[in-house]
Amino acid sequence: MSVMHKYIRSTKKFPHLWCAGCGNGIGLSALVRAIDSLGFNRNEVILISGIGCAARAPVYVDFNTLHTTHGRALAFATGIKLVKPNLHVVVIMGDGDAVAIGGNHFIHSCRRNIDITAIVFNNRIYGMTGGQCSPTTPRGEYATTVPYGNIDYAFDICNLAAGAGATFVARGTTYYARETERFIRKALEHKGFSVVEIISQCPTIYGRLNKMGGPIEMLRWLRDHAVPIEKVRQRWSGESNLLKEDLGGKFLTGIFVDREASEFVSEYYKMAARVRSETRRKTKQTRRKR
């Protein structure tokens, strides 16, 4: 029995909602394997999502699962984490969910450095509604709402997260699923706001509209266009001559940020404990005066 079978909801009727060849299953199973490898008690794992194809992930697996409104999963997660800091809170979002409609919650969760892990399945399109462009659709690519080519600049989700203050930021792909699993494992272990972006394939719409072929061709594309950040870093030591600017149509993968900083929920409870002890001291003093 695979690890995945241990966590599939037997009461939930399959088949699932995703198209054949979709990358979401690869992302979800990487997450489940990472959770399993850490030995988390599944009663203490909360999976939260918003709206979209990616957001359907939690319903299939046996944890505490919450499918919220479009873009707002991180807000719901913040409430849960503040009330029960011992829980492992994981938010699964698509690109539109995370950085279009939910962009405000995304940057503010990064800023707060709240101990939540955000997994962004980035297939660069709105799949569920039939293939509209998203803030991560590359310039010049096609979607149903950019039939003449996208004139908009795309967000780099990892740069956005890093700039907004997230303390762990990584990017993997559905092709390198084991690597992605390792990133998620590190993110789950990280104390603070962690973001793992998974570049994923949507053969049904994105692949078709952009003439990228089927799922296998799209996965090969991911393999050929993912450039490990180490290669850029090596340039500084003369081991490689690759510059960020030389990437062309390629993208960087790897762990971009991994740093320690004070975390929001622990800071809150520290502050609350300090206030309570001060209040008690003051009450005692008042009593003595009386």
């Binding site: 919450l66 807000a75 719901f76 409430g79 405000n104």
Partner: peptide, 18 residues
């Protein structure tokens, strides 16, 4: 929270946590 929508979301999450 960062906006009105988020504060409503956080309230629902908190209530679900008890």
């Amino acid at each position: 929270m960062e906006d009105e929508i988020a504060s409503m979301g956080a309230v629902i999450g908190a209530s679900l946590a008890g």
